[in-house]
């Protein structure tokens, strides 16, 4: 009986399947509230970073202008922005009750996100090799905490979406699963928006 509530025939598929049930609406409002909290979280991180930017114990530590590669950061930005777009496609197909295409675009989103993550790891490895580490200076601590927290969010998002793709593979679309996909997609957009701020405040202002 409980399952029936969620499995809607194709011709009755709602325009906003993610908000078709009370649980779905709760999830929608609750998740936006959560993202409000996350915004303050990142605001605190940005403030900490700005306060400690270039604060190093001695001259022989590298500072922002000597470290950052704008090109790499730009490529990373492109990866993440594109993945945000592909997740929009996934949600678009979800609303059209097109399960296959939704799964496909979610998959592409994951691949782009993984590409971003790989570049970030590459960047971190390079910084560590030239002595800019989490423990080398207050600047290092603040840099890795800010970028690392974002990176951690990316990892969580990737695992989350991947799990959704797999678990939904044999369940298909319902208003129950639609709410889950929509929430994950909201989260992914949020990660993307935060990265835009990181690109501007950390990298762009860092090399200028």
């Amino acid at each position: 009986m409980a399952e029936m509530r969620y499995n809607v025939p194709n011709d009755q598929w709602p325009v906003h399947p993610e908000k078709a049930t009370l649980e779905g609406r709760n999830k929608f409002v609750g998740f936006w509230t959560f993202l409000a909290g996350e915004t303050v979280l990142f605001a605190s991180l940005f403030a900490t970073y700005l306060a400690l930017k270039d604060q190093v114990p001695s001259q022989d530590h590298l500072v922002a202008a000597e470290l950052y590669h704008l090109e790499l950061a730009f490529v990373m930005t492109m990866f993440l922005l594109t993945s945000s777009l592909t997740s929009v496609f996934a949600v678009y197909h979800m609303r059209n009750n097109n399960f296959g295409k939704m799964q496909l675009w979610l998959g592409i989103t994951v691949l782009l996100g993984a590409g971003f993550l790989a570049l970030e790891i590459y960047e971190f490895v390079e910084y560590v090799s030239i002595g800019h580490t989490f423990r080398s200076s207050a600047f290092g601590s603040a840099f890795y905490f800010l970028i690392g927290t974002h990176g951690f969010h990316v990892i969580v998002g990737l695992i989350w979406i991947t799990l959704l793709i797999i678990r939904n593979a044999n369940r298909g679309l319902s208003v129950y699963t639609a709410a889950k996909v929509n929430t994950a997609s909201l989260y992914w957009h949020f990660i993307d928006v935060v990265w835009v701020f990181i690109f501007t405040i950390v990298y762009l202002l860092g090399v200028l």
């Binding site: 900490t48 400690l52 604060q55 190093v56 080398s136 200076s137 207050a138 601590s141 603040a142 905490f145």
Partner: peptide, 14 residues
């Protein structure tokens, strides 16, 4: 890490 370690550039007022 060094957020509050003044010798490493940290700042306790944060």
């Amino acid at each position: 890490s060094n957020f509050f370690i003044v010798e490493a550039g940290g700042n306790t007022i944060i």
